[in-house]
């Protein structure tokens, strides 16, 4: 017998791939296996946000108990956002936890994630460092988020060239590219503080 989870994902998948609303909103869904338990999602960064121009890959796992329990979703593309872990891509969003409802679909989840990119919730953080920066140094937060969009999410919009030269400075000292960028991002792009944290 076909489980309710499989049957529903099949129907949802058709809804998403045929809906032209979703190509307009830059949302995609791709199947990774034949039993409809693992999918790959893709959302475009919303306009007028530091994520504009970026493309974000999402890992989607469908539990056997779907749609009575939410799908498990995390970001595969690295992102600088208060509600998304810059390390693991784990997402803090109520509808993926206790506010899930059986009438929600992968389509509404992807649209909600896009909305989360446009409206961060720093008081309910997944990444405390990013959330703190968002609240106390918003200008640097915006620049850092835009820089990550450029480096990791393939945006071609204006980057922050001085950030690149700082990262290069650390790479030249023998530090790993990504680790250097994380250290600098976490320390307001202060090179000395970043180096100190890399040594600790």
């Amino acid at each position: 017998m076909v489980s309710i989870a499989t049957a529903r994902i099949k129907r949802e998948f058709k809804e998403v791939v045929t809906s032209d609303e979703l190509t307009k909103c830059k949302i995609k869904l791709e199947l990774l296996n034949d039993n409809f338990t693992e999918l790959k999602g893709e959302i475009g960064g919303p306009p007028d946000t530091p994520y504009e121009g970026g493309t974000y890959q999402l890992e989607i796992k469908i539990p056997e108990t779907y749609p009575f329990n939410p799908p498990k979703v995390r970001f595969l593309t690295k992102i600088w956002h208060p509600n998304i872990s810059s390390v693991t891509g784990a997402i803090c969003l109520d509808i993926l936890k206790d506010q899930w409802a059986a009438a929600m679909t992968l389509r509404t989840v992807l649209l909600s994630l896009q909305a989360l990119l446009a409206t961060p919730e720093p008081d309910d953080p997944q990444d405390a460092v990013v959330a703190n920066q968002y609240k106390t140094n918003n200008k640097i937060f915006v620049k850092t988020a835009r820089h990550w969009t450029n480096i990791y999410a393939g945006s071609t919009l204006a980057a922050e060239p001085e950030f690149d030269s700082k990262v290069k400075q650390l790479i030249d000292m023998g530090f790993d590219n990504h680790k250097s960028r994380v250290a600098l991002s976490s320390h307001l792009w202060n090179v000395e503080h970043a180096i100190e944290s890399l040594y600790n």
Binding site: T65, F68, N69, D98, Q99, W100, A101, A102, A103, M104
Partner: peptide
């Protein structure tokens, strides 16, 4: 019925 009898608190409300 499957939704209402589920283990999450929010399940006591209409999914819509």
């Amino acid at each position: 019925m499957k939704w209402v009898n589920g283990n999450q608190k929010s399940n006591q409300s209409c999914p819509m």
